[in-house]
Design a protein around this nucleic acid. Sequence first.
DNA 1: GATGAATGAGGCTTCATTCAT
DNA 2: AATGAATGAAGCCTCATTCAT
Lengths: 192, 192, 192, 192
Amino acid sequence: MRNTDTQKIERVKEAALKLIVSKGYHGASIAEIAKAAQVSDGYLYRHYANKADLVKDIYRSKLKAFHDFIYELLDADLPFKELLKRLITHLFAIAKEEPETVQFIFMMIHDHDFDYPHSRLLALRDICVQLLERGKREDVIGSNHKAEDVLIVVFSLPVKLIEARRKGVFTSHEITSVDVENITDICLNALR
Amino acid sequence: MRNTDTQKIERVKEAALKLIVSKGYHGASIAEIAKAAQVSDGYLYRHYANKADLVKDIYRSKLKAFHDFIYELLDADLPFKELLKRLITHLFAIAKEEPETVQFIFMMIHDHDFDYPHSRLLALRDICVQLLERGKREDVIGSNHKAEDVLIVVFSLPVKLIEARRKGVFTSHEITSVDVENITDICLNALR
Amino acid sequence: MRNTDTQKIERVKEAALKLIVSKGYHGASIAEIAKAAQVSDGYLYRHYANKADLVKDIYRSKLKAFHDFIYELLDADLPFKELLKRLITHLFAIAKEEPETVQFIFMMIHDHDFDYPHSRLLALRDICVQLLERGKREDVIGSNHKAEDVLIVVFSLPVKLIEARRKGVFTSHEITSVDVENITDICLNALR
Amino acid sequence: MRNTDTQKIERVKEAALKLIVSKGYHGASIAEIAKAAQVSDGYLYRHYANKADLVKDIYRSKLKAFHDFIYELLDADLPFKELLKRLITHLFAIAKEEPETVQFIFMMIHDHDFDYPHSRLLALRDICVQLLERGKREDVIGSNHKAEDVLIVVFSLPVKLIEARRKGVFTSHEITSVDVENITDICLNALR
DNA sequence: GATGAATGAGGCTTCATTCAT
DNA sequence: AATGAATGAAGCCTCATTCAT
């Protein structure tokens, strides 16, 4: 029962994410989400007060999953470059395996109706600070740099590549390990 | 008459942009846009076939204005670093003076209902290629880099800073000339 | 439940028919129809894709009910004249008991937006052919006549009387059995 | 000028009739009518108080033209059968040459928003009475018949044929002189 | 707990009509 | 006299949400 329940709500979240990415927040109706999740319309309202709440929950959990992954990386005792490479590899893997998730986060970030959750903001800050410290300790990040610089470099360059490829600005080739190396180097150079 | 007309439709475009940024495409109703522009609901439909058309027009024109500015920079015979600095300065100026415009473009880029106009894609490509050539000629961009790398670096780093400041990830300080220098240097390093 | 449901949708169809007759297709708004049927606006759209669909359904069902009645008459083994009399009596009865229905069908027939359903066209053809055969077999219809003549005579004369009375061209007296006799005779003469 | 004026308003009436027939009363917009008539939207309102007035005027004038034609026939001293034949020929001719006119009248007749003009009702009555008298005088109409019977027979049978052909109930062949003879005979038989 | 029928507010769009020019 | 830009009421339809079962 608890099991069924968890599966049901997971199906709802998955369906919501996919439909919102492909049709926008308002374009994805509760009826459609419920149908795709093989759940009744009313079922949603036993778990969430309204549509926005459902979306916020998905947003929060996706961000958390990403941050959790980074914390795991930080816990493993890796050289900075290796850490960065794995982080970028992970980002590209998500973009490949569940491109809707990346799209979804992009959409939410730019939708004023959905604030970036404060707890996530704190986590993001913390992550950047830790990365900066690691980088400086290993002398791969210049002493003049701040945590904000890390944020800007590490969390925008890989993401911009994903976007550029999806849009086919120059090419639509799948992202490969060559790209990982390239982006990692660019990031390292940027922060030198 | 012609004058009034131009002002009216400009008010509509401005109101639409602002409301869409603050409430999303679907959240900004025609009624609200028209009211904010002090225009009747029907007025819109004398100029655009529908709501999407209005938005596409704004999107296209904002992108074009940005690309036009860059082309002007390219035409002026500036050293690469100076060119880059001015480009970044311009981006920050827009973000400061009309933050909604930047937000609007972000939203559109991530909204599947609104394709990036093909003509703009070509312009963007062309701009990156020209920047790459300039950079290589002056030996400030490494010979291993491609136009895509320029795109990723030049068009994501400054923009990410704008976003980080707006969200107050680390600070909400206004962006200053110090930041311009900093971001310019990071970009140059990134492409070395 | 099922019961309520059927009643509801019947109320909608009835209200739609009446309002369309009195105000025309475009004159009868969904809001008005729904209100008259004591149903919400949205209710309609759980049963029909749109307004036109609702109207088509009513149109089709009214024509079918009429054709079904004639088929029953044809199945009963009546002399041609008696058959004709009953058909005409039925038409007048409908015109008296539910004048809107007759009006509705007239309106639909002359509205280019609503095609005469093909299945009904075939039924009408079939009915005329059967009537012709019967009449010829009993020698009350001249051998020179075609099914089209039957159509023209049987389905226009009674209907034109209904219309003339409704408009009060000569009189607005209710249609009586005397009229039935009269019209029947005129029809029989016409096809002799 | 007067000339131009008359032409203009005639163009408007013609455009209105055609558009109303093909798209319905509400489907034909003033803008479209004005455009088709190469006239400004506002021009209509210098001649008619509103859209309905324009339509009423067209309706009235089309009916009048038809009645005038019949009065001319009545004035010519023709045998009843010849008179009837010419009337029917005329009806078919209109149906062929300007089918929209016939359609238009049908639509108006069944549209409760547009009353049959009283003056036309009187004319129609008068016409039927005169036809009845003629027929009786020549002994081709039975003494038992009333003016209403004439109305029903003469004004519904030919019209129903036109409709049947247009809809292709049995055939879509153009109406020919053979049909004229046939319908004339049927009418005469009907009134014997 | 779960459903899904029903609601009705609100969205986009059309178009008859007005009126300044 | 004639225009046509502008209006805004009103129409059709969608969909988040509720609630009886």
